[in-house]
Amino acid sequence: NKASVVANQLIPINTALTLIMMKAEVVTPMGIPAEEIPKLVGMQVNRAVPLGTTLMPDKVKNYE
């Protein structure tokens, strides 16, 4: 099972992601793969992401 990116804290809307905000966890359904964490640093979320929520591609601005 592959790990996904999960919010390590509440991430407010329009916040630029940092390493400390994210952790890798095996979750269902799968979100953004954990190996993409370095790519996500500096990207902004387009909505608030509660603690423990899986980061889905549609929650990150300009994620492809």
Rank of each mutant, 00 (worst) to 15 (best):
N1Y: 13
N1T: 14
N1F: 13
N1A: 14
N1K: 12
N1Q: 15
N1I: 14
N1D: 15
N1P: 14
N1C: 15
N1E: 14
K2M: 13
K2N: 13
K2D: 09
A3H: 09
A3V: 05
A3S: 09
A3K: 11
A3T: 06
A3W: 09
S4P: 02
S4L: 02
S4K: 01
V5M: 01
V5N: 02
V5H: 05
V6R: 00
V6Q: 00
V6N: 02
V6G: 02
V6K: 02
A7H: 03
N8A: 15
N8L: 08
N8P: 01
N8I: 07
N8W: 03
Q9Y: 03
Q9V: 14
Q9W: 06
L10Y: 15
L10V: 08
L10K: 07
L10C: 15
L10G: 07
I11P: 02
I11C: 04
I11V: 02
I11D: 03
I11Q: 01
P12M: 07
P12K: 08
P12G: 05
I13V: 13
I13N: 10
I13M: 14
N14E: 08
N14T: 02
N14G: 10
N14F: 11
T15I: 09
T15Q: 08
A16E: 11
A16I: 14
A16T: 13
A16Y: 15
A16R: 14
A16S: 12
A16F: 15
A16N: 11
L17C: 06
L17I: 12
L17V: 01
L17F: 01
T18Q: 10
T18R: 09
T18D: 08
T18C: 09
L19N: 08
L19W: 11
L19D: 08
L19Q: 08
I20Y: 13
I20S: 13
I20K: 13
M21L: 03
M21H: 08
M21T: 07
M21R: 00
M21V: 07
M21N: 10
M22T: 03
M22P: 02
M22E: 06
M22F: 06
M22C: 07
M22G: 07
M22Q: 03
M22V: 05
M22W: 02
K23H: 07
K23T: 10
K23Y: 09
K23R: 15
K23F: 08
A24D: 07
A24S: 12
A24L: 06
A24F: 07
A24M: 06
E25T: 08
E25I: 10
E25Q: 14
E25R: 12
V26F: 12
V26Y: 13
V26S: 06
V26E: 08
V26Q: 09
V27G: 03
V27W: 04
V27S: 05
T28Y: 13
T28C: 15
T28V: 12
T28E: 14
T28K: 11
P29F: 07
P29Y: 03
P29D: 06
P29V: 08
P29R: 04
P29K: 05
M30T: 10
M30N: 11
M30H: 12
M30A: 13
M30G: 09
M30Q: 12
G31D: 03
G31L: 02
G31R: 00
G31H: 01
I32S: 04
I32E: 02
I32W: 03
I32G: 01
I32C: 04
I32A: 02
P33T: 06
P33C: 12
P33R: 08
A34K: 00
A34R: 00
A34C: 09
A34P: 02
A34V: 06
A34L: 05
E35F: 12
E35Q: 11
E35M: 11
E35Y: 13
E36V: 06
E36G: 03
E36T: 05
E36H: 11
E36R: 09
E36N: 10
I37C: 08
I37F: 03
I37R: 02
I37V: 03
I37D: 01
I37N: 04
P38S: 10
P38Q: 09
P38T: 10
P38Y: 10
K39A: 11
K39L: 12
K39D: 11
K39G: 09
K39S: 12
K39W: 13
L40Q: 00
L40Y: 01
L40R: 00
L40A: 01
L40I: 07
V41E: 04
V41N: 04
V41Q: 03
V41P: 01
V41W: 00
V41M: 02
G42E: 03
G42H: 02
G42V: 06
G42R: 00
M43W: 00
M43G: 03
M43N: 03
M43P: 00
Q44A: 08
Q44H: 11
Q44L: 11
Q44D: 04
Q44C: 14
Q44Y: 15
V45M: 01
V45R: 00
V45F: 00
V45H: 01
V45C: 00
V45D: 06
N46W: 11
N46Q: 08
N46D: 07
N46H: 08
N46I: 14
R47Y: 12
R47E: 15
R47N: 12
R47H: 14
R47C: 15
R47T: 15
A48H: 11
A48F: 08
A48S: 12
V49P: 04
V49A: 03
V49K: 04
V49H: 07
V49I: 15
V49M: 09
P50T: 08
P50E: 11
P50V: 05
L51E: 15
L51W: 10
G52S: 03
G52C: 06
G52T: 00
G52M: 02
T53A: 15
T53S: 14
T53Q: 14
T54P: 07
T54V: 10
T54N: 04
T54I: 07
T54E: 04
L55T: 02
L55C: 06
L55Q: 03
M56N: 06
M56Y: 09
M56V: 06
M56P: 02
M56W: 06
M56F: 12
P57F: 01
P57E: 04
P57Y: 09
P57H: 05
P57I: 00
P57N: 00
D58Q: 07
D58I: 05
D58P: 04
K59T: 15
K59H: 15
K59D: 15
K59F: 15
K59S: 15
K59Y: 15
K59P: 02
K59M: 15
V60I: 14
V60W: 00
V60H: 02
K61P: 05
K61Q: 10
K61H: 11
K61T: 11
N62H: 11
N62Y: 11
N62C: 13
N62E: 09
N62W: 10
N62G: 15
N62T: 05
Y63N: 04
Y63Q: 02
Y63E: 03
Y63K: 04
E64I: 15
E64L: 14
E64D: 11
E64M: 13
E64K: 13
E64Y: 12
